[in-house]
Design a protein around this nucleic acid. Structure first.
Lengths: 148, 148
DNA sequence: AAATAGCTTGCGACTGATTCTCATTTGAGG
DNA sequence: CCTCAAATGAGAATCAGTCGCAAGCTATTT
């Protein structure tokens, strides 16, 4: 049993809920995806694997995974209903252009120690750090000056 | 004419669009609010000021303000259709508990210089920095151990 | 293994948010 | 004032997400 499956099971038990076949399959699908996803996409993945799970069940399961700390809402603003699983991928900052929506990433090496210190102060158990900087990418700075 | 009105006008002109009375009123309303808001709330504000602007127009104007760089989607994940105007309020980090949803804030003094340096490298014109740390607050760490 | 109780699921109806359509109005320029 | 493109209001249409209920599982008890 995968690590995350165990975690989910524990969470469900604590709520008198069951780790059913459907939930297990949804969990598998979530961790098979390495990009942001929404309920609809997850449902597609399951369908294409011939797993007949209703969309309603997908919608019902996502909040559970969220509460169990296995997924989180996508940090991208303006994207609705998007999630991503919590995975040990390298921490990074997002630089989001508010005009064109382009996103660049930079590593978080220099920021992480600072946040780790503050987490200690707050007694906060960090799962994922997301640093979002919004503004204008250099392209849009130029087009803004050209008045379009 | 306020600074932001001028900015909006410039943006609209560049698109062959007009700074109409409605748009001006919506802009006023947006900048009168110092909290996150959605289309509905904005519409209420306008109504209570006896400005009869249809909800559809509010919905049509928000993307324009967004593109003009005057507002941005709320950085809080899971809040859909929420915006806030871009205002020089003090930068801070959010510590969001993925289980109970509680949010704490800490100032960004130590992180800011680092991001400023990276912005320079990327030629990125920063408008707002949001640092979101997700994990378990100390309360939920405890209740997790108590298996609820 | 059958009986039971409670949790889960699928289905389709439902809700609320957002977008679209189109007839009418408004605004800038001539 | 005239004209034409752009903007608006009202309500219909769409879309994502939720809900209610009857039927299906699962774990547990006889």
């Amino acid at each position: 049993m995968e690590d995350y499956t165990k975690l989910f099971d524990t969470y469900l038990n604590s709520r008198k809920m069951k780790l059913t076949a459907s939930r297990r399959l949804i969990l598998e699908a979530v961790f098979s995806l390495h990009e942001h996803f929404d309920a609809e996409q997850l449902h597609q993945v399951l369908r294409s694997a011939s797993q007949d799970i209703s969309l309603a069940t997908v919608y019902r399961t996502l909040p559970l995974l969220l509460q169990a700390g296995l997924i989180q809402p996508s940090p991208r603003p303006g994207t609705r209903g998007m999630y991503e699983h919590i995975w040990g991928h390298p921490r990074h900052a997002h630089w989001v252009c508010v005009r064109c929506g382009a996103v660049q990433e930079t590593p978080l090496d220099s920021v992480d120690p600072i946040l780790a210190r503050e987490a200690r102060n707050l007694k906060f158990e960090t799962q994922e750090t997301s640093v979002e900087v919004k503004g204008l990418c250099w392209k849009c700075q130029n087009s803004a000056n050209d008045s379009q």
